[in-house]
Design a protein around this nucleic acid. Structure first.
Length: 513
RNA sequence: ACGCCUGUAGCUCAGCUGGUGGUAGCACCUGACUUUUAAUCAGGGGGUCGUGGGUUCGAACCCCACCGGGCGUACCA
């Protein structure tokens, strides 16, 4: 069923065609100016001829019409912003035939239509820089009405806030809430800042398989698929760690990849089934070096996206200025609970967890219990960027044992705004130790841990050829983007977040036929 | 997955203790208007009150189930 407004627009389309006007022309429209540039640079002085925009040609959507008889105003929204158009009947229709104004503009053009206009820039008597239109061309007729958002003095009226609408119809959201484009521009700026930083250091951006016969590199449940020709099960990667390490074995000194990873787990405002990490591996370095590098790189990201190291996130101002705080995991737990668990055995840690009202279950080993205590009692309180170091070995089957703290690995996580956003370690490169760790994981799997890692023989073969000492890091790009853009939900930093299927999609499609 | 909140026109929202769905604003249609800017003025159309049951003389409102959405919790990045 078409709404009244949709029927009206289809009728307008038919009338446009009946007037011999092509509503979807093929030819290039020669744009020579943009709304934001004109507003910023317009200068009517004679000697500023290059900045007076007297032959401006713009293209964009009509976003507002104010019809006033023989002259009207409209707002044109292009990729840079909006500018007011002044459309006088006798200017666009110098001859006897006033159809272009009376019919085409006043009746047949709608909010949302793409048009091209040519005209002279001037300032109205109320001081608004506007274009006096001399030519008006349909570029694309819009058949579906956009919700209209109005604004005055910075206050927005009738803003479309329905998240369902915004996420499902992001294309419309971007049109009517153009401020969100900034969020996505910033997201891209985060990528380009990091890419520039890493390229300058000489590291190689690479691509590795998304379809993997054995998923590894993290603890998570995968999406499973099937390749017909090879008749084999393939998994969508949950991480790319093991492939990047193979490239370190192959002799690259530094490799990185912005990688879409896939985890078949719950969704929340911090989780989307597909998400992006950057993983970076550098040989001959250790996790101390990586902490320094991470601070420097993320500080640059903050400055690039916010102009300063200080970023407003919710109610907090987070300062990414180096150096960040560093706690070992034991120190962090002692700091927030007053209890030193570093010397405790598994039973004592379990008792401590119970005393702190941290939920436990019998399958948890000492490492998992410590991780739970940290997650419950410490993580949410770490607002400013902080490195937590030296994790229990049980939790980190790919990390190198600590050079002088038994039972721990050389690992750190970066925490910010109460959430982990990166995870790094001095990589385990002892192939015999690595095999034992994988075997321990297999044991955990037998005990019912669905996220236990599987044993990857090919990866072990690579390690046996020899991998240099290497440090690696994974940074959650979506989480980083949330922080840098002050977004409360991962859905706000993904153009097309995963959604449940639309309830009446089938019906709608039938109606469209 | 569980708990709490929520669903009224294309959008934003009123709707009292259950008594005929709102003269609501924007959008849309008709008309007026050559410097307006949330344009204004006069008129008009538009609804399966998320869906299906139940209670009741009577349900947008109360009850149940289902379907969307939000926020927490859990798993995790």
């Amino acid at each position: 069923m078409l709404s009244e407004q949709e029927i009206v627009r289809r009728e307008a389309l038919a009338q446009i065609k009946a007037l011999g006007i092509e509503p979807y022309p093929a030819a290039e429209y020669p744009v020579n100016a943009y709304a934001a540039d004109i507003k910023e640079n317009y200068n009517q002085a004679e000697e500023e001829a290059d900045r007076n925009y007297q032959d401006a040609a713009l293209a964009g959507r009509i976003m507002m019409k104010r019809i006033m008889g023989k002259a009207s105003f409209a707002e044109l929204q292009d990729s840079t912003g909006r500018i007011q158009l002044y459309i006088a009947r006798d200017t666009i229709c110098p001859d006897e035939n006033k159809d272009l104004y009376n019919k085409v503009f006043k009746k047949l053009s709608d909010i949302g239509d793409f048009i091209g206009i040519k005209g002279k820039t001037f300032t109205t008597k109320t001081g608004e820089i506007s274009i006096k239109v001399s030519e008006f061309t349909f570029l694309s007729k819009s058949l579906r009405p956009l919700p209209i958002v109005k604004e005055k003095d910075g206050e927005v009226y009738d803003a479309v806030t329905d998240p369902d609408f915004r996420y499902r119809q992001r294309y419309a959201d971007l049109v009517i809430n153009p401020a969100i484009r900034d969020t996505f521009r910033k997201r891209t700026l985060i990528y380009s800042t990091m890419r520039k930083y890493l390229d300058t250091k000489g590291y190689l951006e690479v691509e590795t398989p998304i379809l993997q016969p054995i998923y590894g590199g993290a603890a998570a449940r995968p999406f499973k698929t099937h390749h017909n020709t090879l008749d084999m099960t393939l998994y969508l990667r949950i991480a790319n760690e093991l492939y990047l390490k193979r490239l370190i074995v192959g002799g690259f000194e530094g490799v990185y990849e912005f990688s879409k990873d896939f985890r078949n787990e719950g969704m929340s405002r911090f989780h989307n089934p597909e998400f992006t990490q950057i993983e970076l591996y550098v040989s001959y370095k250790d996790y101390y070096w990586m902490m320094d590098m991470t601070e420097e790189m993320i500080e640059q990201v903050a400055i690039a996206t916010n102009g300063t190291t200080k970023v407003q996130v919710g109610e907090n101002v987070i300062d990414f200025k180096r150096p960040w705080k560093r706690y070992t995991m034991y120190e962090a737990i002692e700091h927030f609970t007053g209890i030193d668990i570093s010397e405790m055995d598994e039973d004592a840690v379990r008792e401590t967890a119970k005393k702190l009202h941290v939920p436990t279950d019998p399958s948890m080993g000492r490492g998992k219990l410590i991780d739970e205590i940290f997650g419950e009692k410490c993580e949410a309180q770490l607002i400013q960027p902080t490195f937590i170091t030296d994790y229990p070995v049980e939790m980190s089957p790919l990390a190198k044992k600590h050079r002088d703290k038994p039972g721990l690995v050389e690992r750190f996580e970066g925490i910010c705004n109460g959430k982990e956003f990166c995870n790094a370690f001095s990589e385990l490169n002892d192939p015999i130790d690595q095999r034992e760790r994988f075997e321990a994981q297999l044991e955990l799997g037998k005990r019912g841990d669905e996220e236990a890692m599987t044993l990857d023989e090919d990866f072990l073969r690579a390690l046996e050829y020899g991998m240099p000492p290497t440090v690696g890091i994974g940074i959650g790009m979506d989480r980083l983007a949330m922080i840098m853009t002050n977004s409360n939900s991962i859905q706000d930093v993904l153009f097309f977040p995963q959604m449940k299927p639309e309830a009446n999609q089938g019906k709608e499609e039938d109606a469209d036929e």
